[in-house]
Design a protein around this nucleic acid. Structure first.
Lengths: 189, 189
DNA sequence: CTTAAACATTGACAAATGTTAAAAAATCAT
DNA sequence: ATGATTTTTTAACATTTGTCAATGTTTAAG
């Protein structure tokens, strides 16, 4: 049930079995179904989630009432609403399962506790922040310099799972365009 | 000459005077003039820079030969090409002074050394990564859900320095649009 | 001060994307 | 399986943004 996370940790950091046991004991398994909401707008984000299987997205709803997907986490990735989690203030975003799957959750208190007692956890946190930042920077790049078609092709190259496994609706609002535009784009291949 | 960084550190982390002295001794002052290149495309980024005065941008050049500005650091902000710096591999981006100013540089080796010997430096690094991630996430939001006019207004609200102090050319390519579009946008106010 | 270079604005037109509506296709719950 | 719901595609049209070219303005070097 936590084997996947254990394997991920083993590959990512040099932890002793004791470290691993402490870390794994902090995570709680949750089975989620597609469309389940893990965090609502205006709630404080109290967990970091590790995706064992399936996928989770972070999205918000803009003034016009449209959904906009900011990030999608697949297997072996962490997701949270970092700003809300760090400061324990209300989130502007939602967290939602985009597929049926298993996730592991660690609470804010346990997370803080691990930072305090396990140096290796701090190192993992730094590594994950670096990855998250870099991923975001690439995504930003794609918006600054590419048009919709180019962003679609780039997504297909760098993260085809988004296109292969999720609905056009979500793919479109992850790319920052309408479903209709996406539909046309795919025709223009 | 390093007073500004010292003050910034004092406000950001709880460091002893000894910690501060060690940290400050790693930074080297550089005077930069507008348009000076601090890092070229295809070079390995060997420093993290702290902006004491002026501003520094990270930008890249796309296939069509257009510049696209991904990030701009002003006073009391750090800037580097994180990916290149962490992995000590070639950068796809440039670093350039966008105003005359003073910056403080810390080398990769000293940075690593501080991470190793000063717990407080690790904490500062985490804090800066969190800030960088959050800032990026907001910027991403603006691209996903807003059109150019809205992005401009949002930028004016959240970081007017960009508009007030830098050329239209840079503002435009920071917003992901052409100079001409920006010019029209400003008229439509 | 003068001139060349860089930057900013404007207009005409083209291309990309959004909007609205409808129909076709896929999915889901019974 | 069947009907209802959701998702995807298509089309016509509106709006936004890009491209190109010309002109005005500012900046910087000599």
């Amino acid at each position: 049930m936590t084997e996947q996370l254990e394997q991920f940790l083993t590959l990512t950091i040099k932890a002793t079995q004791q470290d691993l046991d402490i870390i794994l004991s902090c995570f709680k398994l949750e089975m989620v179904k597609k469309n389940d909401i893990l965090l609502n707008d205006n709630e404080t984000c109290k967990h970091v989630f590790f995706v064992s299987s399936g996928s989770i997205r972070a999205f918000f709803i803009d003034e016009k009432g449209n959904e906009a997907t900011r990030y999608i986490a697949f297997e072996n990735e962490f997701i949270t609403i970092l700003n809300s989690f760090i400061t324990q203030t209300k989130s502007k975003e939602f967290l939602q399962a985009t597929e049926n799957g298993q996730i592991l959750a660690i609470s804010y208190d346990d997370f803080r506790q691990l930072l305090y007692i396990l140096p290796i956890w701090k190192d993992l946190y730094i590594k994950q922040l670096e990855i998250a930042y870099t991923t975001n920077a690439w995504r930003l790049e794609s918006f600054i310099k590419m048009d919709a078609k180019e962003r679609f092709d780039y997504l297909f190259e760098t993260n085809p799972r988004v296109i292969q496994r999720l609905s056009n609706k979500i793919v479109a609002n992850y790319l920052g365009i309408t479903q209709e535009s996406l539909s046309r784009l795919k025709g223009k291949k």
